[in-house]
């Protein structure tokens, strides 16, 4: 789109509205709550794990469309992933937001966040759920990075 509103393409709106994983786990092995202190957005991410891999994922997200879409993407794709895979996906999203042209083959959905690279104040919006999921995984495995 030429008006600069490519950020709000239909795919990202559909993903945000689908709100995959927007729920609460009765019993979680890992959990983290992250705030964006600049705007007050908040993500609570919960995971159930087996041998370090996610068997169930749920989140409660208060945030903008980018934040909700990112949380929804993780809700849809998170099951089966381990901490290394989450870290790799987070790195890939950060690279896209810093201008890398293409999304990795195993995370093509990340491409929808690339238009946000022109708006640094919005990077945290998309990254907050990913960082929350990383923290939730670490809360389980004891990595204190």
């Amino acid at each position: 789109m030429s008006d600069g509103l490519e950020l709000y393409q239909d795919a990202i709106k559909r993903l945000a509205n689908a709100a995959y994983g927007a729920s609460q786990l009765a019993s979680a092995d890992g959990e983290a709550k992250l705030n964006n202190p600049l705007c007050g957005d908040r993500v609570v991410m919960q995971v159930a794990l087996s041998n370090g891999h996610i068997t169930a994922i749920a989140h409660q997200t208060k945030g903008c469309l980018l934040c909700k879409a990112a949380a929804s993407l993780l809700g849809a794709r998170g099951a089966g992933l381990d901490a290394a895979a989450i870290d790799a996906a987070t790195d890939a999203l950060e690279a896209l937001l810093h201008g890398q042209a293409a999304a990795p083959a195993d995370w093509p959905e990340l491409a929808m966040f690339r238009p946000a690279h022109a708006y640094p104040s919005r990077h945290k919006c998309a990254l907050l759920p990913f960082h929350a999921l990383q923290a939730a995984m670490r809360s389980r495995i004891g990595d204190t990075r």
């Binding site: 008006d3 509103l5 950020l7 709000y8 705007c39 007050g40 903008c64 980018l66």
Partner: peptide
Amino acid sequence: HPHDVCQVLDHHQLALRGGHHCAQ
């Protein structure tokens, strides 16, 4: 969400603030 609203408004040459305005 006000962030999204203000982002769109920016494309209409409107400078507004969205968020908690340091008054949670």
